[in-house]
Nucleic acid binder design. Structure first.
Lengths: 230, 230
DNA sequence: CCGGGGTATAAAGAATTCGTAAAAAATTGG
DNA sequence: CCAATTTTTTACGAATTCTTTATACCCCGG
């Protein structure tokens, strides 16, 4: 997936961090850095990365300890870096929950390939539910299917795009301009007209009444939102 | 997993096989062996292992080729062994679908730890069947065969590639661009009419009607998907 | 009471997209 | 090297979808 995966790098040596950051960013990844184990764990909880690159040689706490604490709540793949090549170290790290172990110095190409391999097996699909249900209405973002009372509703591209966009933020208002920019492109950000027509079609197909909405409610002058009962 | 995981070892050198077998069996794994690439792929389809250990230096066919064919239908983790330590080799294998790469000679403890790491992450990965059946239609990804009412359907490369790609996500929409990128390459991601023609051929051979589809349904403006009862 | 901004619906015309056929070019396998 | 198959190119009608244009609505404030 060329989706911008986020990678958290925990390493105390600034030059290594810089080296990794430049390499990873050049591949299109988003990179977050931490210099200590404690900071790393905070960042991990905060940014919810898709991959953790962890150097075992940290000043404040043992790398193994960081790994252990991280694994208490996350299954995100971990790639461990270390200068120590001792086999016992590797075994400990791998059995402690690491998914791969690379010994410094390493080739950057191999490193990037291992990063790709780790990201490949762990689709970040877990992050948000792909199935939104509002009473009789069910929106399956993964399968791109919408059902009403179990019956599939045939939606056109734009119709589905609008509904899906709303479904990604259930209960929250999505701005007209947001919808227009995302679906029609930035050039049509002002043509709120298009939106009304498409929303109208969706409502018709869902049997929804704008004056007494079951699903899509209009926020005048702002945008639309899905009703927020789960 | 202390459940007896099955590990398939593909290596032409008997002493390496023996070494690995003894080590793995002592850990409680069930081990299946193959000396050649062809035999290995057959065994893989037959025994459905939980992990594949593949030596790249095989006599009958290129290890990369074995890896590629295996990945056509299976997502089971693959650990690649090789005497060659060249970085380009590693990158190729890892990008070709391998999950880890160990250079000979290696420490057995590290090897076993990497095996554990690969098996650990595996079980949650939905064990995707290599055989997809939709009523009278049967798609065998391992043997690259498609049968309709028990009769084999002759498909060309592209035709099979499209159908197989759809079969990997049964019921889910596969984007036109996804199909084009994966089968024709990134340069043809816009030539959606290739797709229409090939899909047309497949439908013809399967006796499928686009307006009342039994198998392949078209999602206008988006892509195609196999009907989703399973 | 009346007008205006924002909204909802309907119905045209324009532009895509889809499916099929058939010819030309490239690939495959003997 | 040749023949057969496969893939790519080219073309066109039909159906759908999107855009445009037009009209009526509703709530609020002047």
């Amino acid at each position: 997936m060329s989706q911008t995966a986020t990678i958290l790098v925990i390493d105390d040596e600034p030059q290594i961090r810089k080296f990794l950051r430049i390499s990873l960013v050049s591949q299109g990844y988003k990179v977050v850095e931490a210099a200590t184990g404690g900071e790393g764990l905070s960042q991990a909880a905060l940014t919810q990365p898709d991959l953790l690159v962890l150097d075992l040689g940290l000043p404040d706490m043992d790398g193994q300890q960081v790994l252990r604490e991280f694994r208490e709540w996350s299954r995100v793949p971990v790639l461990v870096l270390s200068v120590r090549a001792s086999e016992i170290q590797k075994v400990e790290a791998l059995d402690g929950g690491a998914n791969d172990y690379v010994t410094k110095p390493f080739g950057i190409q191999e490193f990037l390939a291992r990063v790709r391999a780790l990201l490949r097996q762990a689709p970040q699909g877990e992050t948000q539910p792909a199935l939104i249900s509002l009473g009789p209405l069910c929106i399956d973002l993964a399968y791109r299917r919408v059902t009403l009372d179990g019956v599939e509703v045939a939606l056109t591209r734009k119709e589905y795009a609008v509904l899906a966009q709303l479904a990604r933020y259930p209960g929250r208002v999505v701005t007209q301009q947001q919808l227009l920019k995302d679906i029609w492109g930035p050039t049509h950000a002002e043509d709120s007209h298009y939106l009304r027509i498409v929303v109208g079609h969706v409502r018709q197909k869902l049997g929804d009444d704008p004056t007494a909405p079951r699903f899509i409610v209009t926020e005048p002058g702002v945008g639309y939102r899905l009703v927020g009962d789960a």
